[in-house]
C-alpha cells in the first residue's frame, strides 16, 4: 500500500518535471535553454524508470542521454555559436501551427483513448513472453541475459550502427575546401563546379 502511494507521488512529480521540460524544449527561444530543459525531461524519465524498477536503465539514461547526447548537442551549439534566440513569433507556413497542434492532440488523444479502452491490465499481450521480471535476480543480470540470448542479433547490429555513426562523423566533419585536388587527369577535366549563385542567395 505504502509503496504504491510512494510510486504515485514520485510519478506525479516526475511527470510534471518531464512535461515541463518537454514544454521548455519547444518554448524557449534559445537553444541552450531548450537543451537544458531537455536535461530535465531526461532526468524525469530516468526517475520514472527507477519507479518502474528499471534501475539499470535509469543509470544508463542519465549517463548516455544527459551525459553524452545532451552534452554533444550543447557542444555543437557552442561550436556553431547559434545560442542566439530564434524568431518563433512569426510562422511563414500557413496553418502549420494549427495543423501541428491538431496532429499532436490527435495522436496523443487517440493513443490515450486506445490504452484506456483496452481494459483489464491495459495490455493485451502475452505475459512475460521473453523473460519474466523477477526479484530474485538483479535487474542488470536479467537484462544482460536477454540481451545476449534473445536479442543478441540486435546487439550485434548496433555495432554496425555505431560504426556508421563514426564514419558519418568523419565524413561530415570534412571541410569542403579540404577536398583533395583532383587526380592527375584534372588538367583535362573541368574544375569543380562552383556552388550555384542562386543557392547562395537563398541561404543568405
Amino acid at each position: 500500500m505504502g509503496t504504491d502511494t510512494v510510486e504515485a507521488v514520485v510519478f506525479v512529480a516526475c511527470a510534471l518535471i518531464v512535461l515541463g521540460g518537454a514544454f521548455g524544449v519547444i518554448w524557449f527561444r534559445n537553444p541552450v535553454q531548450s537543451a537544458l530543459s531537455l536535461v530535465a525531461t531526461l532526468f524525469g524519465v530516468a526517475v520514472l524508470f527507477l519507479n518502474m524498477n528499471a534501475q539499470f536503465l535509469a543509470a544508463v539514461q542519465v549517463i548516455v542521454y544527459t551525459g553524452a547526447i545532451v552534452v554533444l548537442i550543447l557542444f555543437v551549439i557552442m561550436l556553431l555559436g547559434v545560442d542566439t534566440a530564434d524568431d518563433i513569433d512569426a510562422e511563414p507556413l500557413v496553418g502549420q501551427r494549427v495543423i501541428a497542434l491538431v496532429i499532436a492532440a490527435g495522436v496523443a488523444g487517440l493513443v490515450i483513448a486506445g490504452v484506456t479502452i483496452v481494459g483489464g491490465d491495459l495490455v493485451s499481450g502475452a505475459r512475460a513472453a521473453t523473460a519474466a521480471i523477477t526479484d530474485d535476480v538483479p535487474n542488470i543480470e536479467q537484462i544482460g541475459r536477454v540481451l545476449f540470448t534473445d536479442y543478441v542479433y540486435a546487439l550485434e547490429i548496433t555495432a554496425v550502427l555505431l560504426t556508421i555513426a563514426v564514419v558519418a562523423a568523419v565524413v561530415m566533419a570534412r571541410k569542403p575546401t579540404e577536398v583533395e585536388p583532383l587526380p592527375q587527369e584534372s588538367s583535362s577535366m573541368e574544375p569543380p563546379e562552383p556552388v550555384e549563385p542562386e543557392a547562395e542567395e537563398v541561404f543568405d
Binding site: 518502474m52 499481450g125 512475460a128 513472453a129 521480471i133 537484462i143
Partner: peptide, 12 residues
C-alpha cells in the same frame, strides 16, 4: 508495457 507484462524485454 514491460512492467505491465512482467517482461524484461521492454527494458532491453
Amino acid at each position: 508495457f514491460g512492467m505491465m507484462l512482467g517482461d524484461i524485454a521492454g527494458q532491453v
